[in-house]
C-alpha cells in the first residue's frame, strides 16, 4: 500500500518535470527558461530524496544538498549577468 503511494507520487513528480522541461524548451525569452530551470531543479531534489529512500543510502541526501546549494548559486549568477554583466 505504502509502496504504491510512494511510486505514484514519483510518477507525478516525473510528469511535473516533463511539463517544466517543455516550458524550458519553448519559452519565449531567457527569463522564462531560467524560471523553468529553477522549478526543474526543485522537483529533481524531491526526486533525488525519493531515490535515496528507495535505495536506503544516506549519502544520496548529500547529493541533494550539494545540488540545492550549487543550483542556487547558478541561478543567482544568471540573474546578475542579465542585470549588468558578470
Amino acid at each position: 500500500m505504502a509502496d504504491i503511494l510512494y511510486n505514484t507520487s514519483a510518477v507525478i513528480a516525473l510528469i511535473a518535470i516533463v511539463l517544466a522541461g517543455y516550458r524550458s524548451l519553448k519559452g519565449p525569452n531567457v527569463a522564462d527558461r531560467v524560471v523553468a530551470l529553477d522549478v526543474m531543479t526543485i522537483i529533481s531534489i524531491s526526486l533525488i530524496v525519493y531515490v535515496a529512500a528507495l535505495a536506503q543510502r544516506i549519502i544520496y541526501l548529500d547529493v541533494a544538498m550539494v545540488y540545492a546549494l550549487i543550483s542556487f548559486i547558478g541561478v543567482i549568477a544568471i540573474a546578475r549577468y542579465l542585470e549588468r554583466g558578470l
Binding site: 522541461g21 524550458s24 527558461r33 531560467v34 530551470l37 526543474m40 531543479t41 529533481s44 526526486l47 547529493v63
Partner: peptide, 13 residues
C-alpha cells in the same frame, strides 16, 4: 547555456 544546464541536471539524476 541554459539548455546545457538542463542537460547537466538530468545527467546528474
Amino acid at each position: 547555456i541554459i539548455a546545457a544546464g538542463v542537460i547537466s541536471l538530468l545527467a546528474s539524476i
